[in-house]
C-alpha cells in the first residue's frame, strides 16, 4: 500500500458517499446517469468475485464490500425509491456500444484466459468507459449540480491517483500491470475536459455549465 493508492481509494469512497448524499438529501437523482451507475455496479460485481476466495487484508475486503453495497444501494435509490426523479430523457447513451466491445476485448486481450481473469479484465475495461453516459448526460443538459460536479471530480481523481500509485509500484516494487495502466489512463483522460471546467468554474464558486 502507498499514499497514492490510499488517497485514491479514499477519493473513490468520497465520490460514492457524495453521490449517495446528493440523492438522499435532494431526494432526487436528477442529473445523474443511471446507465453509468448500472455499469459501475457491474464493474464491482465482476471485479470483486474473489471477495470470498482470496483474502488479501481486512482493508481490501471491507472496501470491496462497501463499494459493492453502495453501488447497488445507488441503483436502489435511483431506480426504485426515487425513480420518479430519474431523468431518462437525458440519459440516452447506448450502453451496448460500450459493454459489447469491452466484453469482446476482454476475451482478446487479457493476462490469462481463465473465467476470473477475463471477468477482472472486463471490469477494468468497463470501468474506463463507464463514466461516458454521465458525461454525455451533462453535455445534453448543459449543466450539472455543484454536488454532482464534486462527485465527478472525486471519481475522476481516484483513477488519476491510481496512475501515480502504478508509477510508485513500478519503481519501488517492480509491479506493473499493462491492462490496468492503459485502461486507467484512458479513464482519466476522459475526465480532462470535465476537470478543466470544474477547476475553472466550480473552484471560482460558479455552477458547472457547459459553453452552449
Amino acid at each position: 500500500m502507498n499514499v497514492f493508492r490510499l488517497t485514491g481509494d479514499i477519493a473513490h469512497l468520497l465520490a460514492i458517499i457524495l453521490l449517495l448524499m446528493k440523492i438522499w438529501k435532494t431526494r432526487s437523482c436528477a442529473g445523474v446517469s443511471g446507465k453509468s451507475q448500472m455499469m459501475f455496479a457491474l464493474v464491482f460485481t465482476t471485479r470483486y468475485l474473489d471477495l470470498i476466495t482470496n483474502f488479501i487484508s481486512l482493508y481490501n475486503t471491507t472496501m470491496k464490500m462497501i463499494f459493492i453495497a453502495s453501488s447497488y444501494g445507488t441503483l436502489y435509490l435511483m431506480f426504485l425509491k426515487f425513480r420518479a426523479t430519474y431523468d431518462s430523457n437525458h440519459d440516452t447513451f447506448r450502453m451496448e456500444f460500450l459493454v459489447v466491445p469491452v466484453a469482446g476485448l476482454s476475451f482478446l486481450v487479457n493476462h490469462d484466459f481463465s473465467p476470473l481473469e477475463i471477468l477482472w479484465t472486463f471490469s477494468i475495461y468497463l470501468e474506463s468507459v463507464a463514466i461516458l453516459p454521465q458525461l454525455f448526460m451533462i453535455s445534453k443538459t448543459g449543466e450539472a449540480e455543484t454536488i454532482t460536479s464534486h462527485y465527478l471530480f472525486a471519481l475522476g481523481s481516484y483513477r488519476a491517483l491510481y496512475i501515480l500509485n502504478w508509477v510508485y509500484r513500478f519503481y519501488f516494487e517492480g509491479f506493473f500491470d499493462l491492462i490496468a495502466v492503459v485502461a486507467g489512463c484512458v479513464q482519466t483522460v476522459l475526465y480532462c475536459d470535465f476537470f478543466y471546467l470544474y477547476i475553472t468554474k466550480v473552484w471560482k464558486g460558479k455552477k458547472l455549465t457547459l459553453p452552449a
Partner: peptide, 10 residues
C-alpha cells in the same frame, strides 16, 4: 473458477 493471480488493488 481458477484463482487469478493475487490482485491486491481495488
Amino acid at each position: 473458477i481458477g484463482l487469478g493471480k493475487k490482485k491486491d488493488e481495488l
